[in-house]
Design a protein around this nucleic acid. Sequence first.
DNA 1: GTCATGACATGCAGTATTGCATGCCTAATG
DNA 2: CATTAGGCATGCAATACTGCATGTCATGAC
Lengths: 290, 290
Amino acid sequence: MTTDWDDLRTVLHVIRGGSLAAAGASLGVNYTTVARRVARAEAALDLILFERLADGYRPTEAGLRVAEHASGMEERELDMMRQLQGRDQRLSGRLVLTAPQLMIGPFIAPVIERFVAAHPKVDVTLKANNELADLARREADLAVRISSSPGDTLTGLRMAAQETASFAAPIWAERMAIGPEAQVDWIIYEQYAQVPKAAQARFPNSRVILTCNDMAAMIGAAVAGLGVVRMPMFLGRHTPGLVQVPALEPQSYMDIWLVGHPDVWPSAKVKAFRDMLVPEFRARRGEFVA
Amino acid sequence: MTTDWDDLRTVLHVIRGGSLAAAGASLGVNYTTVARRVARAEAALDLILFERLADGYRPTEAGLRVAEHASGMEERELDMMRQLQGRDQRLSGRLVLTAPQLMIGPFIAPVIERFVAAHPKVDVTLKANNELADLARREADLAVRISSSPGDTLTGLRMAAQETASFAAPIWAERMAIGPEAQVDWIIYEQYAQVPKAAQARFPNSRVILTCNDMAAMIGAAVAGLGVVRMPMFLGRHTPGLVQVPALEPQSYMDIWLVGHPDVWPSAKVKAFRDMLVPEFRARRGEFVA
DNA sequence: GTCATGACATGCAGTATTGCATGCCTAATG
DNA sequence: CATTAGGCATGCAATACTGCATGTCATGAC
């Protein structure tokens, strides 16, 4: 008679994921269960929501319509989850943080250590994720991000300005000491794909020796002596085995922001963490610039 | 980790119903199950939603907040249900009608008979309810109502104008034949509580002999000869054993409307029923007025 | 004071839901 | 053409959920 709300949510996840297996994964249940819930929803609504094709479930128009409304229900649920977290004045329970992988060691970890000592009943989860966590979905409560703006719907706090520079193993400093004719090998981040123009001008004998999609790997390669890497100031300074080299003048880079969803922002846990993290960054802002 | 939507709905029903038992009844499950779902929701959200008092569950502030959002989710679900019904072009499945109890026999039943003959795959449910069914909640797809307007958010079709008159057992016609000095006993609908002024003027010896809250019962009393009843024209005419008496001049009364929710209105089943019902009323509109 | 009523907690047994294993089908790959 | 991988259907066993019965507590009626 009356529809089961979880079955509606299951339909939504099938359409989002594109398959029973994907829906099962995102719901944390076996895909068999997903298939049966879909069948139950169809029986309850007296509608065919998916065509069973050999290569998977294809939503019918009715299925899309159901998913659309289920999505609206989910939005309301997420509103709720955020607001509950935002109004929670307790210093206990889960607090989920996310930050750029390579910033965690030198800057975030020490703060977390002090935080858990001060608030032992808070369970801190840290997502070292380079992909942006969806703060509206509460994938994280608070995020440290390197960007030029905090994002439209998010509350943000600019913690520090940043500059980049060129770093390499000490041997490269010696090689460049001979002057502009020195041969400079660059390790380049995938998205840029070529030697920075300013570096090319200063050392005409520059070339790309390696292109890579992962900064941690690039640092490893640089420490091993493969070549020069352009990276944020703080990274080069905090990586043992690297020194700053004159291949490139320091230049300004994206700022460091602390961002959160406005609903979640007032939470006692979030506030307590902010109150430790922000002063840390502010006090150490010199480490991010030349 | 992730909240169960049905548990949220259960919380909503507990707050709406005021008790576990009431919530269980409206959800169609045992109240024990309701209690366990509430406990599960609390565990999942890590929040106390209700205080367990000796005289029942009292919602906490967090509980009210959860219910508020769950209510938003429910609204979205109802939107969906209505729209699915509205877009359904099949002439099969459930069709729920509601109409004033006493109008069903003489006017609605004959139409239903023809309708089910023409569309045998439609399961017609008829709610003979004097309370207004909530069409937004799809308690009914289509309603015949006696009112002065169709309602704000509903689509309406005015099918006929109505008048009321006074009816009684034949003996009362004889008694009144002697003239204005005749003694007239009235059976009065609870809300009015006294003899209509116009009747008092015409027959000064009028009095209330019985007040009642149910028109069917009043008709029974009238047939038994207890007194005179003011009722819609069609009712008096279709009740064997009653005749119109001159205790009161016919006077205009509320119109007869066919109303539905705009979302549901385009449904094939709803349209097919309308197309039979409206001509019936229009053709017989003379039966509602003097 | 006793009794009845309404609301909830809890233990137990039956049932329905779930997950796993197996098998079929299609599409992409070599 | 064989092979692999992704996607789904189905049967069976384990599990989780549900409903029932019984007991406790408070409130209000007699």
